[in-house]
């Protein structure tokens, strides 16, 4: 799915202001979710409440503090060499739609 890992995405929201229902709709679009009118209202309230709490982080002086993205200082990466893996048939076994050894999806259109 095209929503990226920690790729910052553009979101037109005015900072320091509460999120509106329109902002919530835009976030849902980025997250590939469709919210009911009820969910839109509820999530608007709840995200604003949560952000209010999260704002308390602002009380902490973090000037010059390095971010800790991970508890381990080092991660090992395995050697990039071919090895036996799961057979194709098994890997495709749980796919909703398969054709000629590939995952099959509905048509891909622009826009």
């Amino acid at each position: 799915m095209p929503t990226g890992r920690s790729e910052p995405q553009t979101l037109q929201v005015v900072i320091h202001m509460a999120l509106t229902v329109d902002d919530i709709r835009q976030i849902a679009r980025l997250a590939r979710l469709e919210l009911s009118a009820e969910e839109e209202r509820l999530f608007t309230d709840q995200l604003n409440q949560l952000i209010e709490q999260v704002e308390e982080m602002g009380q902490v002086d973090t000037e010059g503090v390095p971010p800790m993205y991970h508890p381990l200082a080092t991660q090992h990466i395995r050697e990039d060499k071919p090895r036996a893996s799961m057979p194709q048939e098994k890997a495709l076994d749980q796919a909703p739609d398969v054709e000629a050894g590939c995952f099959r999806v509905p048509k891909i259109t622009e826009g």
């Binding site: 979101l11 037109q12 929201v13 900072i15 919530i24 976030i27 997250a31 995200l47």
Partner: peptide, 15 residues
């Protein structure tokens, strides 16, 4: 859904 929404928001470039 709620947590995906929060996560998507806090990773958006503006914030």
């Amino acid at each position: 859904k709620r947590r995906i929404m929060i996560g998507t928001y806090v990773l958006s470039s503006d914030v």
